[in-house]
Amino acid sequence: MGDGARWSLEDDWEWQVQCARANDAWVRSTAASWVPPVEEELVLAARATALSQWYPSTSHNYFRFSDGPPPWAPSGRDDVRYLPGCISFAKEGVDGSAVFLVWSGHLLLSPDPVLVLATPDAVVAAEALVEVLTTDS
């Protein structure tokens, strides 16, 4: 981006896809990781839904959204509002496979978030989060 260029929502999504791909590659190289290499799958599934209207970000093993670029992004803001829902992912399947957990509320904050859905399908998780965010907001 040149001087004066603004960081767009599309730029943020492209960056998120690249980061997810790189993170999945790193996780694949670390046999002991409790995080499955499904971040890119989740980002692409979310991008194909109404979630694409918000700024995406991941933190460790959860995927959340805000109403503007987060502080660490180019043109980021300190006053972004994180939406009250997210998707976490871990190796929680009976066979150690990936499970996506859809939450209403904010993880790691009070009041405690509510688990809405657990699914092995990233598309189903993304669609469920759309429902959470459009119902709760």
Score class of each variant (00 low, 15 high):
residue 41 E to D: 05
residue 90 A to N: 13
residue 3 D to G: 14
residue 60 H to P: 11
residue 67 D to A: 09
residue 110 S to T: 12
residue 92 E to L: 07
residue 57 S to R: 13
residue 33 S to L: 13
residue 8 S to H: 15
residue 114 V to C: 08
residue 102 V to W: 00
residue 75 S to K: 04
residue 104 S to D: 09
residue 21 R to I: 03
residue 90 A to Y: 10
residue 72 W to T: 08
residue 122 A to V: 00
residue 37 P to F: 00
residue 103 W to H: 11
residue 30 T to G: 04
residue 65 F to E: 05
residue 19 C to D: 10
residue 45 A to Q: 00
residue 98 A to P: 00
residue 54 W to R: 13
residue 80 V to Y: 13
residue 29 S to N: 15
residue 70 P to F: 06
residue 28 R to G: 04
residue 15 W to S: 11
residue 129 L to K: 02
residue 114 V to E: 06
residue 100 F to M: 01
residue 66 S to N: 12
residue 27 V to H: 09
residue 22 A to K: 10
residue 30 T to K: 15
residue 137 S to N: 13
residue 49 T to S: 11
residue 100 F to L: 01
residue 20 A to M: 12
residue 21 R to V: 04
residue 20 A to N: 12
residue 121 D to R: 01
residue 100 F to E: 00
residue 46 A to H: 00
residue 19 C to Y: 13
residue 3 D to Y: 10
residue 59 S to I: 07
residue 27 V to Q: 14
residue 8 S to Q: 11
residue 38 V to L: 01
residue 135 T to E: 10
residue 104 S to R: 15
residue 68 G to W: 02
residue 33 S to G: 12
residue 132 V to C: 10
residue 20 A to P: 06
residue 4 G to C: 09
residue 118 A to C: 08
residue 101 L to E: 12
residue 75 S to C: 12
residue 69 P to R: 13
residue 81 R to I: 04
residue 58 T to A: 14
residue 110 S to H: 09
residue 44 L to F: 02
residue 105 G to N: 13
residue 136 D to Y: 10
residue 133 L to K: 02
residue 64 R to T: 05
residue 56 P to V: 02
residue 33 S to P: 10
residue 95 D to F: 02
residue 10 E to A: 14
residue 119 T to Q: 01
residue 97 S to T: 05
residue 84 P to L: 06
residue 68 G to L: 07
residue 100 F to I: 00
residue 59 S to L: 08
residue 88 S to I: 08
residue 111 P to W: 15
residue 46 A to T: 03
residue 115 L to K: 04
residue 51 L to K: 00
residue 26 W to P: 09
residue 57 S to D: 10
residue 20 A to C: 14
residue 102 V to Y: 02
residue 117 L to K: 12
residue 78 D to I: 08
residue 21 R to C: 03
